[in-house]
Design a binder for these strands. Sequence first.
DNA 1: GGGTTAAGTCAATACCTTTGACTAAGAGAT
DNA 2: ATCTCTTAGTCAAAGGTATTGACTTAACCC
Lengths: 237, 237
Amino acid sequence: MSTPKASGEAPRRRLPRGALTPERIVTASLALLDEQGLAAFTMPRLGRTLGADQTAVYRHFASKDDLVLAVADRLLTEAFEDFEPAGDDWRGTLVDVCQRVRTTYVSHPAAAVLSGPRITTGSSEMKAADAVVGALRTAGIPDPELALYYRVIADFALLWSGGLAGFRILDESIQEAERTTWATAYATAPDQFGNLHAISGDLDRIESEQVFDTALELLLDSIAERAARARTGQDTA
Amino acid sequence: MSTPKASGEAPRRRLPRGALTPERIVTASLALLDEQGLAAFTMPRLGRTLGADQTAVYRHFASKDDLVLAVADRLLTEAFEDFEPAGDDWRGTLVDVCQRVRTTYVSHPAAAVLSGPRITTGSSEMKAADAVVGALRTAGIPDPELALYYRVIADFALLWSGGLAGFRILDESIQEAERTTWATAYATAPDQFGNLHAISGDLDRIESEQVFDTALELLLDSIAERAARARTGQDTA
DNA sequence: GGGTTAAGTCAATACCTTTGACTAAGAGAT
DNA sequence: ATCTCTTAGTCAAAGGTATTGACTTAACCC
């Protein structure tokens, strides 16, 4: 009689053998992070979500950290699914790459914050990385600097998107509180911050996404400018 | 006979009344984070560091999260200690502000990673924020766009520095592992990533700090360019 | 059908944050 | 000098966490 306790709790049968796979676990992790947030991403809850024991995941990932790496990988895979470089429109290619990262991060903010520091240039999605280099070459950037600008674009996409996700994760209430910080600071020293006060009306209307887009435009404008200078033979001195 | 157990452990006398202050606790937190890293920043260890009970900190901070906010504040205070805007050298002022954030974050990477997502434009150090706006005004940026560029600079400094800190925190071993990811990817699909491969030699020599500086230069070049256009009366269309 | 292997489970360890009750340090009043 | 009172520091405990080692048993191979 191995029948478990006759309490109200459904005893949950043992899962069949291949029920859990790395893919399924990563998918469940992402769903848990999206729906319940960063704090809910624990092994017990993940196990429950999967209908398994809380330690079952350890049969597929050596540690939670390992799982996080896999989630990070999934995020980038999702970002660059069916990505193709836009031929000779180098600027379009770069904008596309950066916005793909941003869009993915903002739609999975908790997962992005978790994996953000674990993703560095070159962990996966080499195809996109290669496209960035190709685009810069198309633009006419000469060779030793090209690597530097590549890093600028790659770091911009990853770091700035990660920061955006971090902001997105904070409770609405906290975001509100930080907004009011401005008001109180003005109140205590009204004329000390005249410059800031003069633009406070404009500041309120700015969305973080718009800031991202503007920064990208500024970076690309400068890169285009330097490419033009390089083509006409002038050096940067 | 209130003498405690005669074991080898020194019994640690009760601390006198004003021994703990928020300032001292924040200082100890920062030291702990700097010396032992993110994982060591726990209430028990912090208490031990202070020579106090593991729960003593709760008399001064409602939660660990509150303490993190205070650490974040300390970081920015440190960054902008004796900061003065550089008069009409607007570009110098902006570079100074951004590099102060970067330098502080990189010298306290664990603290920066912890507090990074909690710092948004305007939480403290309004003086620096005001100086950024002033610098942009000196540069000649007209008014509705000025707010946008202000956000670009502020977000750049905070988000990018935070990202740098995140990278800094990873073990050397992990950093090494990520570097080798490149090599293996080349091995599996050698010619698919020709662009990348062509610059791999240059890439190895690039430091993250250099990427930060370059990105800042690119942003400022574009801002200067747009300011010049605005002064000569052309519009951006 | 029997044996093997590894996927899923269980129990236990060593942490962690946070709370509530307790105690005594030191300030202020008399 | 003593008495009282507030509250900073302490203690014990609850409830959560990651991770490990021993166990069971499902499913594959022969």
